[in-house]
């Protein structure tokens, strides 16, 4: 094949490889897809149309579910698989089970950091995926900015 054509195809396929969605490759995406539409679930996806200009978080996805042993096990397994060479930022355990966990995934060839947050408290599971151009030491600061975001859905106020 003509070398120019080879270069063209490489350039054409490269964005697809880079932007196919770092999140789409994650095991936790299965949890979002399998349980995001079930009864009792609240799935919130926020992108730059809401987040832009107020926080460095470019993508926020959270799932709140009633606590269920099967879902908890699947979620913690998915997190473990996605974590690979990533970093455990904080993990609180109770009776051997993870009650709260903050994780930073291994950085890919992208300026973005990816985080997974998990809590299993008060009979509810919360799974959060975050993406943004901020390092782990700024995670708490960026999460605090979300406290200023007020969402009104169906006459109910949601605070993140």
């Amino acid at each position: 094949m003509n070398p120019l054509k080879k270069i063209f195809f490489l350039i054409a396929f490269l964005p697809a490889y880079l932007f196919a969605g770092a999140q789409n490759d994650l095991n936790i995406e299965t949890i979002f897809q399998n349980h995001g539409k079930q009864k009792g679930a609240i799935l919130i996806e926020l992108a730059k149309d809401v987040l832009g200009g107020h926080t460095q978080i470019s993508r926020y996805k959270s799932l709140i579910l009633p606590s269920d042993t099967g879902v908890i096990k699947a979620t913690t397994n998915a997190i473990r698989q996605d974590l690979k060479n990533g970093k455990v930022l904080m993990e609180n355990k109770k009776d051997g089970k993870i009650e709260t966990g903050y994780y930073c995934l291994e950085k890919q060839d992208s300026p973005d950091y990816e985080y997974i947050l998990f809590t299993d408290k008060s009979r509810k599971i919360t799974l959060i995926y975050l993406r943004g151009k901020f390092p782990p030491d700024q995670l708490e600061s960026e999460l605090n900015k979300l406290k200023d975001l007020f969402i009104k859905v169906n006459n109910k106020h949601i605070k993140l």
């Binding site: 697809a16 969605g21 679930a41 609240i42 007020f150 009104k152």
Partner: peptide, 27 residues
């Protein structure tokens, strides 16, 4: 596809599997 994948990220809220319109404000 790559370009659209980036542009398609929009905010969305689902309650019990149903999508709802929502209002937001930053205070």
């Amino acid at each position: 596809t790559a370009v659209l994948a980036q542009e398609e990220e929009k905010s969305n809220i689902l309650f019990d599997g149903s999508s709802y319109n929502f209002l937001f404000s930053w205070k």
